[in-house]
Design a protein around this nucleic acid. Sequence first.
DNA 1: GGCATTTAAGCTTGACTTAAGGTTGGTCCT
DNA 2: AGGACCAACCTTAAGTCAAGCTTAAATGCC
Lengths: 223, 223
Amino acid sequence: MRVLVVEDNPQVARQIAAALQRGAYVVDVVSDGEEGEFFGLTESYDAVILDLGLPKCEGLTVLQRWRQAGRTMPVLILTARDTWREKVLGLRAGADDYLTKPFEVEEVVARIEALIRRAAGHASAVLAWGSVTLDPSSQRVTIRDQPVEMTALEFRTLSYFLHHPHAIISKTELTEHIYNQDFDLDSNVIEVLINRLRKKLGASFISTHRGKGYQLTAFDHET
Amino acid sequence: MRVLVVEDNPQVARQIAAALQRGAYVVDVVSDGEEGEFFGLTESYDAVILDLGLPKCEGLTVLQRWRQAGRTMPVLILTARDTWREKVLGLRAGADDYLTKPFEVEEVVARIEALIRRAAGHASAVLAWGSVTLDPSSQRVTIRDQPVEMTALEFRTLSYFLHHPHAIISKTELTEHIYNQDFDLDSNVIEVLINRLRKKLGASFISTHRGKGYQLTAFDHET
DNA sequence: GGCATTTAAGCTTGACTTAAGGTTGGTCCT
DNA sequence: AGGACCAACCTTAAGTCAAGCTTAAATGCC
């Protein structure tokens, strides 16, 4: 985890940097707004601590420029002024948290931890097999990073397969899990379904085990 | 956007709820820890405001139980005590932000906005998609810089969509976040609502995914 | 009373099912 | 071993039905 500290008071900066390093963070420290803007735009950070009272360039301006440039890393703002109007302004400008001087360095670390934790919480658990990925939250499927359209039923079916990699899945098992009631078994719905999936994901993506069921094919190096 | 307020002082609760509702949020208010825990576990919220001094069950305990149960919605903690040790404890327990009494209700709203924004993964306050923009603070919507009139419900719905770009949003999810009571699901309110939004923003602004839900259409430049 | 929201009813559409004929692979018989 | 037979599976296309659309009228909230 890498954190940028933009703070003109060298003593405060050193304290914060030390506390973060104790927490196993990598820390860059800069002391004015111009430099801060430059580093925030060109380097990659997991979080930023930004003082509002800065020489050369006002902190809020720096923040706005980062946001305009599409930088989304969490930002914790430090200020000497303790007015709620200030805070509202800062938060509207795109800050994620706010701290008023004086503060304890432990609190800075705790807040940075909370910010990074939250920012990381969006990484959703995507399922994957070979070049195929499935994202349960956005309901999207890709093959070789190309999006593939899936109907609701196809999506459920593929999802079931990816949840049981290596397993051989019988037609009965499939019907039981992708339909909410039991189903007439002398129908060929499943075969049609598998057919549609193979058309979309490559014929060899799912292999057939006669009389037993279907299975994700071991190594997906075709197409 | 739907927010849960857990606060035992009815006056404070009412003030906060009123301010949030002015901001087009849907608000549920409960007054003790037990009830708070229950609602946080069973209902679906975009953010929670949690008072630490609660009857029946301590606020921090409630928070920890939510986190243990895998609930990840952003939580803003309110407290009367202003010690940094308290704050560190709260943040470590899984809070995302912290506010000390007394506070201005405007600041509560600004922080909730910031939390929801961060949780959805974007950084700037004005939401945009293609040529459509939505400003949560002034509650104004424009398309190609032309203002568009929106009813409260339409605004909440559009806002929810813009907070979850790329996501496919089911009817159930929509009802949960734009109404505060549960709803009869064999009604077609959502369909009618989507229909009105499409009339105002262009038929192709929202696309349908049969059996799954609705989604902002990928590239909507220059309709 | 006026406006926002919901209900209701008929219509449209496309996802899923059915059905029919083709293909494959295993097995048994000579 | 070779071939014939059968069952399991594949493929395609057409039909059906429920999900979603649309409009208008009814309801309910300021």
